[in-house]
Design a protein around this nucleic acid. Structure first.
Lengths: 395, 395
DNA sequence: CTAATTTGTATACTCTCTTTACAATATCGT
DNA sequence: ACGATATTGTAAAGAGAGTATACAAATTAG
């Protein structure tokens, strides 16, 4: 597609992005912002108003550049003009998050998954949930796209290669979901999706690079270079958990040894903590919070455990940072409670170990909470449907 | 820019890329290939003919799809329709390569640089060379853009941060060159530019990822993800030489220790070889060839030296491969003579150490020769001026 | 020699942006 | 209070670059 409809397509996405990232503004401001004429903006806005994606905010009128002249009528995104359903397929749980056009999370829910529930069951649950959400008056018929994440490797074509944690193998999940739900489906690895959740609501400087690390039972990663995900040829790129950081460390389930993931995960945190015996299930859920609490209270064992994690993680971060030269590193995942302590200690130590001349990356902690991946999946769907980087010129 | 001229701009680049990568073909074939009408192609071609960028190949006429019907007149790139000058600023030498619109290298030259020659001298030499090349009848007035590479870190804005090998610091080289030469100048790190030299003449599958490693006195790198360079926030990404591969290795000039670059470079090869004393200058130029020769003759010391390089390089490649999931890894640089031996031994060893499910990357050896970086610089200039990935939608 | 097929061009039309003009709605200075 | 000035939003005419349709030209098949 490279005819004049491409131009409208591109400009529409630019306009919606401007409203989302910079807030309401009148037509004239949009024209300046997008280097288009007021007439062109008027034409587009008329269309977007009729499609229910933007609204005129009649109460607020914005003065022009020099505080003189006729005031303009602010235009804003109509938050309920479109919705995006995000889903995280996790161990024992299917988490759903519904976001609106403004990026606000308007609804969430968790559904239990049994150990025997396979792809068919998940697809059925998703279809059911989509219908239920879609039936509510507030969202009726305006769920535009669905994003889905899985805890493992997804090829570019939406084929799930292997999910050892769920016991799934060779599942054409994108196809199954696209057939069951009647809306566009976007599938990704959970870390990749979560990364979108973090960049979604902020304007990005040209060339900005964000690295996201998901620290939980494993150690996943994602990189967003500018506005595009770094995926790799098979879609298996940025699996930071399998960076070798020790010549001969413990064996990893991937078949190698010394992987970052074997040193940095909740089970390992438990080993380093070694304070009391807890059963595994409980450890996964509550250990990070307890370690964080004890560390704050001054417990040397807890502080030592966090420090051990920090030392190993630092090795990975040095490699990742020197390779990607990121502007920010976002830490998320189930280790959330200890992440603030980690971020604090790591930022300076990392700054001392990067190539001379490189700007030190900010290290920030996720604020998306336990629905991080589902929220990211919704953001990813939003991104695919409405952002500029997905316009395909070559097609 | 997102008005109808964008559409023409995009389609023109698509058309030129199709001719470059798929060879001559008639208008009707281009129309099918680009999903445009024959009328639209005719209109574009008329313009491109008048601008001297394509030619009708009257001798060859191509039959239609089913071997019946009126034959079409093949259109091809007019190779001498535009030229691109590539320059490598190296230690003691300024290498130049001139490529034509078809990507063929039509001229090269080497100019000596004295140890005291600073940016001003290089800029003057470049300007002079551009005039000299441009004055020849064959290229007159058709040098469209210039690509320049330096052996070190370049920020996105074309500012040279630090070139320890040349003793340059904080040089606004892109600005200086743009002022001195009256054509567009594109500046990059030498490994980044060389990578373009390798991908330039092949069609790329969607999502293809190429990793390039420049093994010489240092160890530079570049990644091309799809059709775009992975640059990092400051433009300092993919400096693979500074990946730490040993907890406590030799000190690197970057201030860290255990960097890949300290184990994999020509000086290190000399240490591993330890066969005879050679003075440093000579080692850099001839050592790899001599080691390769001896190894081929069965000399265990030479073979051992190559094996030692291979072992260290493998550690870096495992990290790089698991992070980028590349479809190919291209080895180039001054170690060229021993690279075939390295590639052979590394491909299988690497395949055993990647994440399950990942396709093993091809390891290939550069065939661009000693002008690799200059050729890459020319390819980069070509790419910036004529390829699709540089169309800026957001502007 | 006629039918079928394909190429390349011409003409009318469409989409979307720009240019130019203008009415509407403010502030500012006197 | 009121004209000068600045700015917004819309309207009408025009330009650029596609599509749709039709058709003459150049082949092969039978």
């Amino acid at each position: 597609m490279a005819n004049q409809t491409l131009v409208r397509h591109v400009n529409e996405r630019r306009l919606l992005a401007a409203l989302r990232l910079e807030g309401p503004q009148p037509r004239a401001a949009l024209a300046r912002r997008l280097s288009l004429t007021r007439a062109a903006i008027s034409d587009m806005v008329e269309d977007l108003l009729s499609r229910g994606l933007v609204v005129e905010i009649v109460s607020a009128r914005t003065r022009g550049r020099r505080d003189v002249g006729r005031p303009g009528i602010d235009l804003g995104l109509r938050a309920d003009g479109a919705f995006f359903l995000g889903a995280e397929i996790g161990v024992g749980v299917l988490r759903l998050a519904l976001s609106d056009l403004a990026g606000t999370i308007v609804d969430t829910r968790s559904l239990p998954l049994g150990p025997a529930d396979g792809p068919a069951r998940v697809v059925a649950l998703m279809a059911e949930s989509l219908v239920q959400f879609g039936a509510r008056a507030a969202y009726r018929g305006r769920i535009r796209a669905v994003g889905v994440t899985v805890p493992g490797l997804v090829r570019r074509d939406g084929h799930v290669v292997n999910l050892p944690i769920l016991g799934w193998r060779d599942v054409p999940l994108a196809r199954l979901l696209a057939e069951a739900l009647a809306v566009p489906v976007h599938l990704a690895n959970n870390a990749n999706a979560a990364a979108f959740g973090h960049i979604h609501l902020k304007a990005r400087a040209p060339g900005e690079v964000s690295v996201y690390l998901k620290l939980g039972t494993g150690c996943g990663g994602a990189v967003i270079d500018g506005d595009r995900l770094v995926r790799g040829a098979d879609g298996l790129g940025t699996e930071f958990g399998h960076i070798p950081i020790a010549p001969s460390g413990p064996a990893c389930h991937c078949g190698q040894s010394g992987c970052l993931e074997t040193f940095v995960n909740i089970r390992a945190l438990q080993r380093y903590f070694a304070h009391e015996e807890v059963d595994e299930q409980e450890a996964d859920l509550t250990l990070p919070a307890r370690v964080a609490e004890r560390a704050a209270a001054g417990d040397p064992a807890a502080r030592g455990a966090i420090e051990t994690i920090a030392q190993h993680l630092l090795q990975g971060l040095v490699i990742i940072t020197n390779i990607f030269n990121p502007s920010e590193i976002i830490l998320g995942g189930a280790m959330l409670p200890i992440l603030p302590a980690l971020a604090e200690t790591l930022e300076d130590r990392l700054a001392n170990r990067i190539v001379p001349g490189m700007t030190r990356p900010r290290i920030v902690v996720s604020r998306l909470g336990p629905f991080e991946c589902a929220i990211g999946a919704a953001a990813m769907a939003h991104h695919e449907e409405f952002d500029l980087s997905n316009v395909d010129l070559a097609g």
